[in-house]
């Protein structure tokens, strides 16, 4: 059922009378200003020739009619199918956009396996190790921040302030190039893992703290009154409940880290971004490799989103009413 106060914005989309004329005016204006870049729409409109003002206006109106018909058809579908159709249409538009670069598919096909087998695998394991370390750091940081120990609190505050306050790229350089000054020579991959862990640990400290604080104080009191020891209170009572709050933003952090791990390419780790850049350079096929790498990142993020949704369902099960 549809009520006026449902969240359903922009309301314009439900009023074709309003948005279609606006769209038509916009297209006419755009085509007037610069018809040369609109050749892409020609096949959509049955190969009209652009140029004269009459043809331009006809093309603009044709385009508007096409969009109007499309919206009208989609609104007639069930909600689930509306979403699917919109996805497919946007994907097609994106592909059309890519194709307009005149890509060499052969080159992509030739390099794809290298990007996946070497780059993707490296990206994945660096991210996975880093997110695990970051979670441990975050838990420790959150407990320190919530404790009544001034030293622990001070260390945790300094840590989160520093690592949230400087760019990740800088942290990677500092750890890779700076640690040898202290006599600690560290390989590129461990350096990248350390930098990502420290940086994301700092962000996730706040997530964990928020999660732990979201558990009502009565839960602590009940556990303490029953005689549970501090560690058991944390692991058996508080954290399982805090997880519901911690998991969604942690999933986001993992997805963000997956892409931020591309920054370790600057110190020569052969992950996805590094390979995309160097392989593209060899034959001046930069855009092919960049787009391919982007698509791999996207597919990976999408997969992680699905996994995250499953985990969320798992931790939410006791709260179904």
């Amino acid at each position: 059922m549809h009520f006026a106060d449902n969240i359903d914005y922009p309301p314009l989309l439900r009023r074709p009378v309003v948005f279609l004329p606006l769209l038509a005016i916009l297209f006419v204006a755009l085509l007037r200003a610069d018809a040369a870049h609109w050749t892409m729409v020609q096949p959509l409109l049955g190969g009209v020739s652009l140029g004269g003002p009459g043809a331009n206006t006809a093309a603009a109106l044709g385009l508007t009619a096409l969009i109007g018909a499309n919206v009208f058809l989609i609104l007639g579908l069930k909600l689930r199918w509306q979403v699917y159709v919109v996805w497919i249409e946007l994907a097609v538009l994106l592909i059309v956009f890519f194709v307009s670069f005149d890509l060499s598919w052969k080159f992509i096909r030739r390099k794809l396996w290298l990007l996946v087998s070497k780059g993707l695998v490296t990206t994945l394991y660096i991210s996975a190790i880093s997110i695990a370390c970051a979670s441990v750091l975050a838990l420790a940081g959150a407990i320190a921040k919530l404790s009544s120990n001034g030293i622990a609190m001070g260390i945790a505050n300094f840590y989160t302030s520093f690592f949230r306050g400087i760019p990740l790229l800088m942290q990677i350089y500092i750890i890779y190039l700076g640690l040898p000054q202290l006599g600690v020579v560290i390989d590129a991959v461990p350096a990248g893992v350390v930098a990502l862990s420290l940086c994301y640990g700092a962000y996730m400290t706040e997530i964990f703290r928020g999660g732990i604080e979201s558990v009502p104080v009565g839960q602590w009191e009940a556990a303490r009154a029953l005689g549970l020891k501090p560690r058991a209170i944390m692991t058996r009572v508080i954290l399982p409940q805090a997880m519901r709050v911690i998991i969604p933003p942690t999933g986001n952090q993992f997805i963000a880290m997956l892409k931020d791990s591309s920054l370790v390419s600057v110190i020569g780790v052969w992950e996805l971004m590094y390979l995309a850049r160097t392989e593209g350079q060899t034959e001046f096929r930069h855009i092919e490799m960049m787009l391919t790498a982007s698509m791999i990142y996207w597919v990976l993020s999408g997969t992680l989103e699905l996994i995250q949704a499953r985990i969320e369902r798992h931790f939410g099960q006791a709260h179904v009413r």
Binding site: P216, E221, A222, A223
Partner: peptide
């Protein structure tokens, strides 16, 4: 504290059952 909590049971106004169990 532990010895005393073993000897004393407590019931709260807002129950405070563990919702995940």
């Amino acid at each position: 504290v532990e010895a005393i909590r073993r000897r004393v049971g407590m019931v709260f106004q807002s129950f405070n059952l563990f919702p995940h169990l």
